[in-house]
Design a protein around this nucleic acid. Structure first.
Lengths: 150, 150
DNA sequence: TTCCCTGCAAACCCTTTGCATTCAC
DNA sequence: GTGAATGCAAAGGGTTTGCAGGGAA
């Protein structure tokens, strides 16, 4: 977690990395920016983006893109998959090693040399399911999320 | 392919649907817009977006999001996966039914009720691999694509 | 005729970038 | 001290939207 990273250590970079690592969810750049500003209102938006790309390039965080147009950042840098709640937008990490078999199928079908893969599962989280069962209570977080899986 | 779709049939809509269906690749909204303009220069950007969303909502096309920030549209509306070339950006459809097993793993790990899933494989297409083998010939389509899988 | 759809253009959101200043090393 | 990183602000790409005129049913 220390040693020479090949780039300068600044307060902004340390702050941004710790925000991603301590986050309870996969934050967007905008959400990270908000939390940075709570600690230091002088930090610029450009710095947040530049730092996130730097950290991603150095393997300190992982950048994820989903159906919504903004990128999200994950402190987990090993290969893993995600489950997405279509009712409230909750995003959860999962490990699906079974899917490794799938690479060979994909390679045979496409002729590609596959180096990586990522699966997004879409469904309904336990909390939203209990709300649905309880009779479609309104105002449950943000509804109307797209059903799209990507 | 005909009958009552619940929405009006217009030239623009028919044109946009046929462009997606006849496309050799998964076009972005911008690329679809260009092709529409070649046939009728009076069509507006807003019409293309509104129509694509309409067609997606009615299951006539499928909207896909990848690492690049623009959506792509696929005439295949059944569930399937994609292989993405990190060297030239080529995107190819694949069927990986094996991955269906993975849903149960994801459900057990997350507690979600999984309804759908989509896997993106990243790798190098046959053409780019032969170019690489031939000695890193420069100018091979667009290089420097992100390695990210999403 | 009626209401939906379209063209137009402005606005929006997320992200990137140029430049002068500041700061880590 | 020196080059890398930051703050600021403007620009860029993709997408959405309000409104008035036009067209499908």
């Amino acid at each position: 977690m220390n040693a020479d990273k090949g780039y300068r250590k600044t307060n902004q970079r340390a702050m941004i990395l710790s925000i991603v690592q301590e986050a309870e969810t996969h934050l967007t750049a905008g959400e990270i920016f908000e939390r940075v500003r709570q600690r230091d209102p002088r930090v610029a938006y450009g710095t947040v983006y530049r730092t996130l790309h730097l950290l991603a390039r150095h393997g300190e965080v992982q950048e994820l893109s989903f159906a919504d147009q903004s990128s999200r950042y994950d402190a987990r840098v090993d290969r893993h998959d995600h489950v997405y709640c279509t009712a409230c937008g909750l995003l959860v990490d999962v490990d699906v090693p079974v899917a490794l078999i799938a690479r060979h199928v994909a390679e045979e079908q496409s002729g590609f040399a596959v180096a990586n893969h990522h699966t997004v599962f879409a469904g309904v989280c336990p909390e939203c399911r209990s709300h649905q069962a309880a009779g479609q209570r309104a105002g449950t977080k943000s509804a109307n999320q797209p059903e799209q899986v990507s």
